[in-house]
Design a protein around this nucleic acid. Sequence first.
DNA 1: ACTACGCTAATTGTCGACAATGTTGTTGTT
DNA 2: AACAACAACATTGTCGACAATTAGCGTAGT
Lengths: 227, 227
Amino acid sequence: MSVQHPSLRSPITAADRVLLEIQRAIVQGDIAAGSKISEPELAKRFDLSRAPLREALARLERCHLIERIPNAGARVVKLSTQGLLSLYQLRETLEGLACRLAAEHMADSEITELRGLLDQHLSTQRVREGESYYQEAGDLDFHYRVILGSKNAYLINILCDELYYLVRMYRVQLGMNGPRVSRAFDEHKAILNAIANRDGELADLLMRRHIAASRRNIEKQLEQTGT
Amino acid sequence: MSVQHPSLRSPITAADRVLLEIQRAIVQGDIAAGSKISEPELAKRFDLSRAPLREALARLERCHLIERIPNAGARVVKLSTQGLLSLYQLRETLEGLACRLAAEHMADSEITELRGLLDQHLSTQRVREGESYYQEAGDLDFHYRVILGSKNAYLINILCDELYYLVRMYRVQLGMNGPRVSRAFDEHKAILNAIANRDGELADLLMRRHIAASRRNIEKQLEQTGT
DNA sequence: ACTACGCTAATTGTCGACAATGTTGTTGTT
DNA sequence: AACAACAACATTGTCGACAATTAGCGTAGT
């Protein structure tokens, strides 16, 4: 059982490359949510055969970006309040577990690196006040490392491979930027401290709160935009 | 977002059929754990082309029964104490969450049905004392229904599609029968009561304990057999 | 006018062959 | 004898075409 998961291996095959492209296109909304996916059309658009394309579609289904019906075709997922709620319910629990395990299993060197990453985020934040891209990338990077620190291959796979892009899709398409930036950094700091103190229970709690807060923030923004 | 997940749809395509066959073969150990998988060989064995076979392999990778390396091939997963620990860590948390959600979202009719199922298990147990097959099927069926009761599509997908067969593989190949049968039924009953009382917190706790006990039971059996 | 049926067209599933990559056995050198 | 480079082989990745199924549409019937 390898801890190194598929997303980290550089794209080797044509299927890998087209997967990354379509993934990005869906997350960014270039391929509209809910729209039907035509295999021949995409094959022509990316200039390859349907074989690697279908391989890519299978993986897109795996990370919940598309839904396939046998003999009927594939559609890009539709975002919904219900779906977002389900997703964040899961993240709360799973990343909480990841934190607890990280507190137990992360090497001291990894913790040191993570602290360095946070410091870097803080200085970046000061300079790039309000620019959401850095915040998002930084936030995801922090979560990413904690998850990897759990050393649980299945957990890593679920969070980093299967749910990661869906989370990004919700964030991007709902236009997450908001004033939650600085508070999120503080929360990250607190989580890291709990991990460094090897206090798994606290780390779990703090992470669950952190994600719950993030969820409420998105929900608020969602009702502002209109249901 | 459909709550009905892929495993429940009847096998339509050739890829679906061969998927079920290979799945069963791997879970049962007919295809040895850790052994290399040859696409041409399997294609010949099941008398179909490599295209649907590769589709099936992609799904087998999704439920962690095989591991693929680009341009190198696929291997059946190797069972390990570490892997079992990781798997049950995850199940503890996830099925705990499923229980909590089930206590919130299950319809009264579903709860009534589930109670009927448990009664049926009890009478079956009295008749078929010690036969592990019924116990396993019944246990999985109970868990299955609770998970479906959570009404969280992502959670259902992960537990029923992605981890389900791996759990079965560990159980089957480690020869789970043991004297835990009657106790498991009592625990199921307690969990159901908590759900019926809409006490999500207790249901969560009881399910986590139930799975932890199951894990310890397997671990014990594992060291008896020899590491 | 609306529904039911059948047909056409497009899409998905499957196939066999070719190209590219890994693997293995051999050979030559140090 | 051990190691490295090479070559032959096997396996995986990709392609284009065909078969099977479905969706859309027009027509006929009530």
